[in-house]
Write a protein that binds this DNA or RNA. Sequence first.
DNA 1: ATAAACATGTAACATGTTACATGATTAT
DNA 2: ATAATCATGTAACATGTTACATGTTTAT
Lengths: 178, 178
Amino acid sequence: MELSPTAYVILGMLSWSPKSGYDIKGLVDHTTRFFWAASYGQIYPELRRLAEAGLIEAKDTDTGGRRRTVYGLTPGGRAQLREWLAGDPEVFELRDEGLLRLFFAGAAPATAPSTLDAKRRHHETVIAQLREIEAAGKPEGFAEIVLRYGIEMNEWAVEWCERAGAELEAPAKGKGGR
Amino acid sequence: MELSPTAYVILGMLSWSPKSGYDIKGLVDHTTRFFWAASYGQIYPELRRLAEAGLIEAKDTDTGGRRRTVYGLTPGGRAQLREWLAGDPEVFELRDEGLLRLFFAGAAPATAPSTLDAKRRHHETVIAQLREIEAAGKPEGFAEIVLRYGIEMNEWAVEWCERAGAELEAPAKGKGGR
DNA sequence: ATAAACATGTAACATGTTACATGATTAT
DNA sequence: ATAATCATGTAACATGTTACATGTTTAT
């Protein structure tokens, strides 16, 4: 069976412990969002599909009035997750509008420093968010490794923006930039 | 007027010189693809929209039998591009299936080293492609800066994969004990 | 009371990929 | 002749976001 990577986000989350769609969305927003986001519009329909495929199972635990459907992995779902983990990753996509603007900055060179600045600020914001997650959740094992990746990659990007910004200022060939 | 970033890819390409849809696709594949991809299915309809909006202009140059529509920026299109360049970048998205697999590797820990290895190989492949572009096109100015970003970022990622791989192999000390 | 958080879901929209259809020109 | 490249375009499909609709429970 061919599943989307987003389906594996769900399977992976449920491999830790049973969860509701709401739980999954909350976890995604605090963990994988930086390298794999997912919205309710994806999660709820996907939960239904996975349940129909027998990879997850609903344990309708409505605690009184508030309806809440908690799903758990079936043995088949766990096998599917492990099979996916054993394969090679295929998707790697980056969409960086800052880089795009910088690339075309020749049409308005004066805008380059502020583009670089905005990009740097973006990465700094992400670092702050990741550090918060780090402090709050004290992740361990693979989650911690991946979180460190996020922090270090964004730190690298901040440094690059600073270096590139300095380079832009350096060749001041009497053009009267600024 | 609200344009998609992909529309600005076209406007940016045309700001250098007039081009056909085919030209644009070829250039995208050799330049922006690493941080902003575009397919024919996006480019041709977008060219039509931009022409209808008066931001670009077709100069129907059919060289004999082979039909070829070359577009150039109008003054309005150039203004639109410059306006966009002056704003702050908004989109930054990463989709890294390798990181996702690593994140969930707890369900099959033995798969982690090969995931890391595949991710490293991916980044090495990209570096090789970017170096080829660098050697072939001798980019200058902002294009060169952005190309260097691509190479350096992927080098950083390769190093990270090596470091993380070494950590995985190292006996689990430092945690708990100590 | 009322705001925030919990909880599920759908519909409309936007974006993007792939395969297909068509045909001309150039290099081998 | 035939493969590669040039060249344009569409249709079907896949993916993903946003806004909306609905209602409960908990904290202030």
